[in-house]
Every structure is written in structure tokens, then in C-alpha cells.
């Protein structure tokens, strides 16, 4: 990822496109770099929460990358991590406040998870590894790619957990009514929701399975020791 080429590069050059597509596949922040696992555990119980979390992270990572990239030639290297942290923290507070003012119901649902965006290693990782050394436009694309790559895994894990843990998707019952005494659909023939799905260990196991599937399909991803 060399930086600062000549300025005549087209906006969506091949290299720039790679910035978006790479994190979605062979350089996924969650499954390949194994970052941001903590939030993959915390908010993948319901798909709707995972989507909102993905969008919030997407906003913070794009804006953070842009701001740090604009400031990259000014930031003294001794305090660069603190500067990055300040930028991310301020952005997260902005997201939190705007959600509380304009989407109060959603804000209540997300509660502390918005604050937890600050601790998402993907964001700090991209600021340090990419935005500090690249121009604003590629930094935006890099943020977009990594945000989407993170969101895709988050939502995929959430789909499995919500479907088999609660029998719903986006809150809509898929297998019928599971309430004791009012069973319908699959539940009448003895199907049970798997409570383990809702507990945090299952998020790790599902993420592990995704990593396994991905590496089984693309042998180049397997690290050699």
C-alpha cells in the first residue's frame, strides 16, 4: 500500500477499487486480521442491532480516516496515537449525541455499544496503518472497505445467532411462535431454540467457522509456521 502517487490518478482506479474489495474478502478485518472480535461477540444476538452497529462503525471509520489523513502531515509522531484516539472518541460522541437527539429509540437499544466503538481495534488499526500515510480519498475508500468488511461478518454472524437462538430474523418469527402454551409452526413438532446461540461463546464459534470456510476455499490465506 504505497502512498501519495501523482495526482492524476482516477477516482476509482484499480488500486482504489482494491481498497474497498480487499477488506471484504481476502483481507477482511475480522476473519483475516482477527480484529474487532469483541464487538462481534457483544452485538450479534439480533440482526437489527448488528446493522446499526455496522453503520455507526462505518461512519466513524470513514470520518476518522478522512480527518487523520488530512492532518497526517501535521500530527507529531510522538502523540499520534493519542491524536487518533481523540478523533475517534469525538466522532463516537457525535454519533451518540445525534442518535439520542434524533433516533432516541434506537439510541436506547444500542446504549453502551456506541461508546464501545472507540475500543474497536479495526478503527485505530486503519488510522495508524493507512490514514497516517495516505491521501484523503484513498483513506475514505479504505474506511469504507474495512467498515463494510466488518459489517458483513457482523451481520452474517447475527443472522445465524438470531435465527437459531431466537427463531427470528429482524424480530420477525421464522419458525413460528415459541411461547410456551402458544406454540405454532416448527415448535409444535418439538423444535427448540438453541439458547447457546445467544450466549457469547457461540459468536466465537461461528466466527471460527467462517474463518475455517474462508481459508478452506482460499488456500493462500493459510499462514505457514
Amino acid at each position: 500500500m504505497s502512498a501519495d502517487n501523482n495526482t492524476s490518478e482516477p477516482l476509482f482506479s484499480k488500486k482504489n477499487k482494491m481498497l474497498i474489495t480487499d477488506p471484504l474478502t481476502d483481507n477482511n478485518p475480522v476473519t483475516i486480521q482477527v480484529l474487532g472480535i469483541c464487538s462481534a461477540l457483544a452485538i450479534t444476538v439480533q440482526v437489527s442491532q448488528a446493522i446499526v452497529m455496522s453503520l455507526s462503525v462505518l461512519f466513524v471509520i470513514i470520518m476518522g480516516n478522512l480527518i487523520v489523513s488530512l492532518l497526517r502531515n501535521l500530527i507529531p509522531s510522538r502523540i499520534r496515537i493519542i491524536v487518533q484516539l481523540l478523533v475517534v472518541a469525538s466522532l463516537v460522541i457525535i454519533v451518540d449525541q445525534v442518535l439520542a437527539a434524533f433516533l432516541p429509540d434506537l439510541s436506547a437499544k444500542l446504549s453502551v455499544f456506541v461508546g464501545l466503538i472507540i475500543t474497536n481495534c479495526i478503527i485505530m488499526g486503519r488510522l495508524e496503518a493507512f490514514a497516517m500515510a495516505n491521501k484523503p480519498w484513498p483513506s475514505i475508500l479504505d474506511g469504507l472497505g474495512n467498515g463494510l468488511g466488518y459489517g458483513a461478518i457482523l451481520i452474517l454472524v447475527a443472522v445465524f445467532r438470531e435465527l437459531f437462538g431466537s427463531g427470528t430474523l429482524m424480530g420477525i418469527p421464522i419458525f413460528g411462535n415459541s411461547l410456551p402454551g402458544e406454540e405454532s409452526g416448527l415448535y409444535t413438532i418439538g423444535y427448540q431454540n438453541n439458547n447457546l446461540m445467544i450466549l457469547p461463546p457461540m459468536a466465537l464459534i461461528i466466527t471460527g467457522v467462517i474463518i475455517w470456510v474462508q481459508r478452506a476455499r482460499n488456500k493462500a490465506l493459510i499462514e505457514e509456521h
Binding site: I43, V45, A108, G165, N195, I198
Partner: peptide, 8 residues
Amino acid sequence: HKTETPGL
């Protein structure tokens, strides 16, 4: 509630 486990 503020932060109880979703689904539980």
C-alpha cells in the same frame, strides 16, 4: 432495561 443480554 439499559444493557441486559439481548434475547435473555
